[in-house]
Nucleic acid binder design. Sequence first.
RNA 1: UGGCCGGUAGUUCAAUUGGCAGAACGUCGGACUUUGGCUCCGGAUGUUGCAGGUUCGAAUCCUGCCCGGCCAGCCA
Length: 570
Amino acid sequence: MSSLPDAVCDDARPLDFIREQVRRDNTEGTFGGRVQTRFPPEPNGFLHIGHAKAICLNFEIAAENSGICRLRFDDTNPEGEDASFTEAICADIAWLGYEPDGEVVYASDYFETLYGWAQHLVREGLAYVDDQNAETISATRGDFTTAGANSPWRDRSVSENLRLLEEMRAGCYPDGAKVLRARIDMSHPNMLMRDPVMYRIRHLSHFRSGDNWCIYPTYDWAHGQSDAIEGVTHSLCSLEFDAHRPLYDWYLQQLPLPGDPPRQYEFARLNLTHTVTSKRQLHTLVDEGLVDGWDDPRLPTLRGLRRRGYPPEAIRDFCSHIGVARVNGVHEIELLESFVRTRLNRSAQRRMAVLHPLEVVITNWDQPEPVEQRQAVNNPEDANAGNRLVPFGPRLWIDRDDFMMEPPGKFYRLAPGREVRLRAAYFLRCDDVETGADGQIVRLFCSYDPLTGQGKAPDGRKVRATIHWVSADHAVDATVALYDRLFSESVPGSNGSGGDPLESYNPSSLKLITDAKLEPELSRAEPGEVVQFERLGYFARDIGKQLLFHRTVGLRDEWANIQKRRNQTS
RNA sequence: UGGCCGGUAGUUCAAUUGGCAGAACGUCGGACUUUGGCUCCGGAUGUUGCAGGUUCGAAUCCUGCCCGGCCAGCCA
């Protein structure tokens, strides 16, 4: 029984076409009411948000039907595969909140069975050893409009094929000298059915089977068979494997399977705006140093998203919400972000942090001590989150964005002569502004109203804005990483630029702020913890020792919208 | 060029299988608010790719066309 992580929140939405199929199979008793899925990554890279969709789908469908979902590594090609990837993938799946049923399995566990089945096909006259090289095979496959040509080796005797296959396995031939091909139809309209390759010779050590094998099964020859061996009922994969389905079924039809043949169903892979998920492009970003490793918070890798502060629950919410269909589309990254905000709004502790410090001197400080401990609510969304103390003093930092010399309409924050509320403290009026030689604002001279400690003025006067602040004498210095879209084009490589996604790489996708001022409580944030900097957004404390926060996502920002609109119209 | 798969608000998906085209996110407006956040309420956005046909009735069925994706690795 698959473990279903805390209820992926979604309203009773109608069943998608896959769940609909599963239900049909269950009522018709196709697999005796059994449901078994699998997640089959190749251990040659890191998991990304696109994989998350497949993971959620497979695990959730199994759980919904009291079935099981295994993790199977599709390690049929030793080139580039590594145990470090299997470990990373297992860790990422666990982080997402899923626990594979039973032992983790590997396609390489079935190499011997696969070999036996290949011999079976040879004996049935359904497979043969071809001596042609890769170029020749490619050249004689034909194209979309013309049939392929039969290999001159296509009609070898069963005994000769059996012997040659044995010799291939025994290492008698160099790489590429021979292949085993299924004997199907060289004029089939589906190119994949034109005598597909089942085994290729690779004198390469495999990270699990070592040097036991020098012939390795291709994807098509391994996948369906692995599904069948494990008892998979519904083999879910992405749309580009649609054309493989006839071959998937063909192999299964010819073999003495232990049970019902699994069925393959294809769904659209997940694409997100302003990012890339192809292994090649991700590699380029990392290799060229455009990002800082596979866990760079700008990357859509699961490791990147984790470091960025995305709650796994939000990713699951997102996957469940987008559903599954057969249309190839691009999802707006904003939708994912909205699920991140929803989760974080409920869980994140509120703190105050100033990103672009502007000094405020309180000229009418009348307290005996140069500090007053103010009580602040940790999370207004969570009554159990409690309060904390925030030091307040005669010298403060506020954000430069919260002050304007000549405020335009709809700017509610601080300006000369204007009054605002300091969050969890008092009303504050700006009396005077000190400007530098070149006109920049150096510091503000303000007075606070000691009677407004409850956030309200006894005389009933109102303020339009509440702003955040940090006591300058107690502030903790920190580095804050602000992230923007990794690619400026919504679909990188879609317009102009010769279709190269890297052309729209956003060089200012990372802005480091090294002089951020934090309230002291933030120095006690746990590594990996995500907090809300009030009015700014959600920020994740880095795993490392230094005080570094990554901006997970900003808050919805109406003022930013107003400014954007103003810029567009002017 | 052939085959297969798709096409419904800006985006992603629905539409009880032929019966009043909806939801979420985004957007706009309002209420509330010690976060321009959250929450709540409301508005706008559609020639259902196009054209014909069947039908009392078509997003749904039929025909033709248009557009997009996938397929000619010994990658997965």
